[in-house]
Design a protein around this nucleic acid. Structure first.
Length: 363
DNA sequence: AAGCCGGGGCG
DNA sequence: CGCCCAGGCTT
């Protein structure tokens, strides 16, 4: 029975599998990169990033030798930026402690930063032909339906049970293809909404389909809604350069650049709040100008509503502050021509596009 | 166990 | 608009 599921699934996979760059060889480093990029990220979004990445960093050593600054630029726009930092750390660890070879041991590989339960199983099965489960959101959904599991799937014991069910079904011949086939099925047929059961290669084994419960599964607890936050940002220009500030090294959008921004607590206190902030961060006196535009940006757990204003700083302190720009500074004055070299926080990247296109229309 | 961490596509 | 995605780490 389990054997038949694996056979049918693999037969389906052999003709239904999408042609993806990272499926062209089993280089553990390349599989690793693809799995990290694919975490919580759709295949279509990953494609261009993966291609550019492999062209620039074809092997672990090349990546290990690169600067975090540059690596972050190659990741810019993909989201979840800790993934890139962990990948760089992990690759450096592999080069220094494992002689450049990605470990094939479950315990060792899972101790590498950024590689957890799922990614460990994915790399071991795909790159090393090891019969390890790789249980991601797709597999949880597929199995919750196959076995009609109606408990909440984020619970640790439910995940563990599903991992064991997968383990029992893994064929020894093609464990990597089997895991990928499960994910492919979840991504293209056994989808979250409107699963296409008529196309399913394992419909005969699906308990949820037999009970017509597939639309009710998997059961997930509801997430807390994104909290709205009001922000004010200022565009400050001095002699063709603009003031930018680097966000703290921890937390949301860590270490990325943005226009000076404060949270609006009191509508009437925007200017004083910005003044205090700019005095503290950059040591300049500030005067607010006209409003330029509004912008909203939705994260998974937060919603930013930003108003952008023009602003200026006092002449006296200008000369002093213009000299402060440096790569490691928490703030700096940059020409628009330098902006493309910087990692902007998502919402501010939108503002940059707006400003640059407005500039081009002027000239 | 729950919260944090991005960005985009889709119904 | 809300949901979800080839999750991992921190608290």
């Amino acid at each position: 029975m389990l054997k038949k599921i694996a056979d049918d699934l693999l037969k389906w996979y052999d003709h239904a599998a999408r042609d993806l760059l990272w499926r062209q060889d089993k280089d553990p480093y390349k599989i690793w990169v693809s799995e990290i990029m694919l975490q919580q990220t759709r295949v279509e979004a990953v494609k261009p990033y993966y291609e550019r990445w492999i062209n620039r960093y074809p092997d672990a050593q090349t990546l290990a030798d690169s600067s975090e600054e540059e690596v972050m630029r190659y990741w810019q726009g993909l989201g979840y930026y800790a993934r890139a930092r962990n990948l760089l750390r992990g690759v450096r660890e592999v080069c220094s402690s494992y002689n450049g070879r990605v470990p094939d041991d479950k315990l060792a590989i899972q101790s590498i930063p950024g590689i957890g339960e799922y990614t460990a199983g994915a790399i071991l099965s795909i790159a090393y032909d090891r019969a390890e489960p790789a249980v991601d959101g797709n597999v949880l959904r597929v199995f919750s339906r196959l076995y009609c599991i109606s408990e909440e799937i984020s619970q640790a014991n439910v995940k563990k049970r599903i991992a064991e069910l997968v383990r029992q079904a893994i064929p020894t011949e093609r464990p990597g293809d089997f895991n990928q086939a499960l994910m492919e099925l979840g991504a293209t047929v056994c989808t979250p909404r409107n699963p296409c059961c008529s196309d399913c290669p394992v419909i005969d084994f699906c308990v949820a389909f037999q009970k017509q419960r597939q639309a009710d599964l998997p059961v997930k607890r509801q997430k807390t809604r994104a909290k709205a936050i009001l922000l004010a940002s200022v565009i400050i220009q001095q002699q063709d350069r603009y003031l930018l500030i680097r966000r703290p090294n921890q937390g949301l959008l860590a270490g990325m650049w943005e226009f000076p921004t404060v949270e609006i607590i009191e509508e009437s206190a925007i200017e004083s709040s910005l003044s205090e902030y700019l005095q503290r961060i950059a040591g300049v006196s500030f005067a607010m100008g006209e409003k330029m535009f509004d912008l909203t940006h939705l994260f998974s757990h937060r919603k930013w509503e930003i108003s952008f204003y023009k602003g200026s700083v006092s002449i006296n302190e200008k000369a002093q502050s213009l000299g402060e720009t440096s790569k490691t500074a928490q703030y700096g004055w940059f020409y628009p021509a330098e902006w493309p070299q910087l990692c902007f926080a998502g919402p501010h990247q939108k503002a940059v596009h707006y400003l640059l296109s407005a500039k081009n229309n002027d000239s």
